[in-house]
């Protein structure tokens, strides 16, 4: 059987959703027989591959880089999943949304430094005005809420997708 190509992507999130994914523990060994992780923070991937079956995305869209990336990923992915509250609703990254970006940068790099009070500008990407959820920029096929979604829910969704069934939402999730 051909292995299913899975990618995982980390935009503006805390990596907690990726940790929850790893929290399937040894189930990753048997899953490894059915899927290839072709891209993601755990692998030295190439450029995002041309054709991916399932992409799980953690985090909100927060910078111009995030936006370019998610558009390209959408074009190259069959099934796109918003993994966790940051991707689904904006969650914690969106807490900055009522503060102008320059005020935020001013606070951290000018008021918050004793030396070299300056706002970074060399080869670092610009922030978008707001951190927003994925579905505001691209079509999302499945959403798995939770901060983070429980490992069982993630494994459950992947299993359903592997078996070609339509995944059910409504897993128990929580914040705080």
């Amino acid at each position: 059987m051909k292995k299913v190509k899975v990618a995982t992507v980390w935009l503006d999130g805390c990596s907690g959703c990726h940790m929850s994914l790893l929290d399937m523990d040894a189930a990753i060994i048997s899953l490894g027989r059915k899927i290839d992780i072709v891209y993601g923070p755990l692998v030295d991937a190439q450029e995002f591959p041309e054709e991916v079956d399932v992409t799980l995305v953690e985090g909100a869209v927060s910078s111009q880089d995030d936006l370019n990336k998610i558009r390209k990923i959408r074009q190259r992915t069959q099934i796109l999943v918003s993994l966790g509250d940051c991707a689904v609703t904006g969650n914690v990254p969106a807490m900055r949304n009522n503060i102008p970006v320059n005020k935020l940068l001013q606070r951290v790099y000018v008021d918050g430094s004793e030396e070299k009070k300056l706002i970074p500008s060399d080869r670092v990407p610009a922030l978008l005005k707001h951190a927003r959820p994925l579905r505001e920029f691209v079509k999302v096929d499945h959403s798995l809420p939770g901060c983070p979604p429980p490992a069982k829910a993630i494994l459950g969704l992947i299993t359903e997708l592997l078996e070609g069934r339509k995944a059910e939402a409504g897993q128990p999730v929580k914040f705080g």
Binding site: W10, L11, D12, G13, C14
Partner: peptide, 8 residues
């Protein structure tokens, strides 16, 4: 925090 591009 993180930014997303994971390729090298």
């Amino acid at each position: 925090h993180a930014d997303g591009s994971l390729a090298m």
